[in-house]
């Protein structure tokens, strides 16, 4: 593991205020396998609950403890032998609990990783197996996933106990079509949103399991992925990305889009696209939205950051000498951007 501080990155200079994205540390996984994901998680290490970084390679998941001055030390590693790891699924307010998805192209298994308080012994258990289409970790140690095909489609909400040893399962009403992604609704903890293959946005009541509404958002944006929703003044503001979106000349390359929906009438209006600055191209590959910040890895290997309120692209992180960026996450506890490359490097930028 090496530590770096202060390397400047390219900032988008055409905005009124320049943002500050500064490299503060670098984690290097010595494993030769391909890196796939990164996140942050609360974990109790030597008796203290602290925010740790968790990284995933094809067959290992590692937990990194923060040392002084932005240095990190690997403290735990879970090993997998049969199915490769695809993604980390954080359960945001949980401690000593995190889920991971395993599979080849599609998710085949979801596993819970945890350690018991007494001996800090690492454990894992199978949470769900099958043909899993979409999954999201929620607050209050909950996980939602959709699985099965059209005829046996099922949406499950699981709640884990504090130690991770047991879980309660509730079934949410199925929209009877493939769900592409789930998103939490900020400010409304019992509401859950989903986008479907047939360009619908669906809303559930997590407490009752009811499917409240299915709303068509237009076929121009097929296969949209919902990242975050905000409820305000009776309206729902939804941030979407379009992995299959084509470049529209008048708008440049819209990577994210903000739409507003009236859930009562199912009518929606475009608010704004979040496009790349002129001279930059690429389509959405991976991304993360936290509060008013959206970050995306593009097919060009660049990371772009937008302020959702201001509408500007605020920073561009070009591929560095180690290679292209392949995944990006906001840290759960502070405004740090975690940017990863396939070779095992994870860079931490303060924003």
């Amino acid at each position: 593991q090496t530590k770096v501080r202060g390397d400047p990155v390219e900032i988008w200079h055409d905005s009124l205020e320049l943002s500050n994205l500064q490299l503060v540390s670098k984690l290097k996984n010595p494993s030769n396998s391909c890196s796939v994901d990164v996140s942050t998680v609360w974990w109790e290490v030597t008796g203290c609950k602290e925010s740790c970084i968790i990284t995933a390679c094809e067959f290992t998941v590692s937990l990194w403890k923060s040392l002084d001055d932005w240095q990190w030390r690997k403290v735990h590693t879970w090993h997998f032998t049969e199915i490769p790891v695809l993604q980390i699924i954080p359960l945001w307010d949980a401690c000593n609990l995190v889920c991971i998805a395993l599979g080849h192209l599609e998710i085949r298994e979801i596993r819970l990783l945890f350690s018991s308080g007494e001996d800090e012994c690492l454990k894992q258990s199978l949470v769900k197996s099958g043909n899993i289409k979409a999954v999201l970790g929620l607050r209050h140690k909950r996980l939602v996933c959709s699985n099965g095909t059209l005829h046996d489609h099922q949406v499950d909400l699981m709640t884990f106990s504090g130690s991770g040893r047991s879980k309660e399962k509730q079934t949410l009403m199925s929209p009877e079509e493939t769900i592409l992604a789930f998103a939490e609704v900020q400010g409304m903890q019992d509401a859950l949103l989903g986008t479907t293959l047939m360009s619908n946005i669906v809303i559930w009541n997590l407490k009752t399991g009811q499917l409240l509404k299915k709303m068509q958002i237009g076929t121009a944006y097929q296969a949209s992925i919902c990242h975050k929703a905000y409820s305000d003044m009776g309206l729902l503001f939804v941030v979407l990305s379009h992995p299959h979106g084509k470049e529209i000349e008048s708008m440049g390359s819209p990577i994210f889009r903000l739409i507003v929906i009236n859930p009562k009438t199912a009518l929606s209006v475009d608010v704004r696209p979040y496009s790349l600055p002129q001279g930059h191209t690429g389509r959405f590959l991976d991304g993360d939205v936290k509060d008013n910040l959206a970050a995306a890895v593009l097919t060009s290997g660049t990371i772009a950051v937008w302020d959702l309120f201001l509408g500007h692209c605020r920073a561009l992180l070009l591929p560095n000498s180690d290679g292209n960026w392949s995944f990006v996450k906001w840290s759960g506890t502070d405004s740090c951007l975690l940017a990863g490359q396939k070779n095992g490097s994870v860079f931490v930028y303060s924003y």
Binding site: Q210, L212, N262
Partner: peptide
């Protein structure tokens, strides 16, 4: 956005949709 674009807005949409939706 106005009501002409989005129709009548309800601040209690979540509770109202919950009471209208099939259990």
């Amino acid at each position: 956005c106005s009501e002409s674009d989005l129709g009548p807005i309800s601040l209690n949409w979540f509770e109202e949709l919950t009471s209208e939706a099939p259990p």
